[in-house]
Design a protein around this nucleic acid. Structure first.
Lengths: 225, 225
DNA sequence: CCAAAAGTGTTCAATCTACACCCATGC
DNA sequence: GCATGGGTGTAGATTGAACACTTTTGG
């Protein structure tokens, strides 16, 4: 974290509050589900990769703190964000007592990574995440399982796609998350029977080899069935 | 909370730690799913019912704190306990910043309620829970939905039943949690196809109108499929 | 002898899975 | 003209839901 004037004061006061948040930010890049990691410059765990996170500011709720971290790293707001689980942190160091982990879904096209001088953010495919600081690898695993499970009963993937998209693009996202290929016809049948998406009048032409119908999500808010 | 010598010291030190736990303790009593509540004698919310809970002790993990609260109220240990969700607490009062909510399943036959002079614990059917202190009603609702969902893919109900039980008893527990009657034959088919239980040689005679086979759970640890 | 709970199968509908070919376009 | 990706239907297997009668015992 960059030390601006006053930052150390906040850090010191907040240290006693003993709650931190961490966010697993997912996107689909080059057909692979990827996670945003930051490279720590400061101790503890200097030189290791870690999830974006940090202490609550005074008066802030947990959700607000997670949203702030998300926006701070990616520049996007108003995307999907869900609380995952709360983990203990090792005692000592006077650091926070627990981390409340969140996961977020963002459309890569809307992301502008902050480039900091002291620590760099970068995307890693979930299947190639390096050893992380704290117990952050466990958090990523947990987030992945939750996301996979949600595909079957929720519309959360809307947050990973642009406003309009083809069914093939949608299928690619499902395949990236589930890490296995899906049958094209069965996929389209299921999606249409769930009525998650609706066709638009527009047609994709650029780069497509055959004109493709564009769809949009019937709702762009989270649905839980 | 009763103030014993030293309690105020702990409270003051722990208040800055800013994390509390709360436990929704479920049991099945008289055919109804019920929750353990305690009657608060002290401010804030004196005279209101609330979930058992409190601050972490120094060096304690979240799970340990929840287990301590559970054992303290019911006398049982080694039962099912699972983290639910972490809620914000309203600011001000210098109290904790967040509550990590848990839910627990106990067999009523093993419970010995503590009877305190300052505050009384009591069982309430989930459908008749009064207005609780803090946002505790939301926690109970959340716990109920989670428990209902878990029935279809987990064996957690083992913690609500004695070692040996009849299939009809098992069905009564499912019905109490789902709050709807189940078809006897379909229920038995599903349970047996999941291989959650195995028959024993023993037979139930007392009170039964026809001798009934006793079953036990194939595993008495949590299984998640 | 009757009330109360235990035990036991079949049918139908809905859902899921596997699977192959033609078409329009860009190059 | 050919490589690339878009689009479409059917048959078989599995799963879930509805539904009724007989047996044994205690009182």
């Amino acid at each position: 974290m960059k030390l601006e004037p006053g930052a150390r004061t906040i850090e010191k006061r907040a240290g006693r509050q003993a709650v931190a948040v961490a966010v697993v930010i997912f996107t689909v890049r080059e057909g692979r589900l990827s996670v945003l990691l930051i490279h720590r410059a400061a101790e503890p765990f200097a030189g290791r990769w870690a999830l974006p996170g940090g202490l609550l500011l005074p008066g802030e709720t947990l959700d607000q703190a997670a949203a702030r971290k998300l926006t701070g790293e990616t520049g996007v707001s108003d995307v999907y964000l869900e609380q995952l689980y709360t983990f203990d942190l090792p005692p000592g160091c006077g650091g926070p007592r627990a981390v409340v982990a969140y996961f977020a879904l963002v459309d890569e096209a809307q992301v502008r990574l902050e480039s900091r001088t002291t620590w760099q953010p970068a995307w890693y495919p979930v299947s190639g995440v390096p050893a992380l600081a704290f117990d952050n690898n466990a958090i990523v695993e947990y987030a992945l399982r939750r996301l996979q499970a949600k595909l079957s009963y929720s519309n959360v993937v809307y947050a990973l796609l642009p406003e309009r998209f083809t069914l093939t693009q949608l299928q690619r996202v499902y395949e990236a998350i589930l890490e296995r290929p899906l049958d094209k016809r069965n996929f389209r049948k299921r999606i249409q029977s769930l009525e998650l998406v609706e066709p638009t009048q527009q047609v994709e032409r650029s780069g497509a080899h055959r004109p493709a119908r564009l769809y949009r999500f019937a709702r762009r808010e989270p649905l839980t069935f």
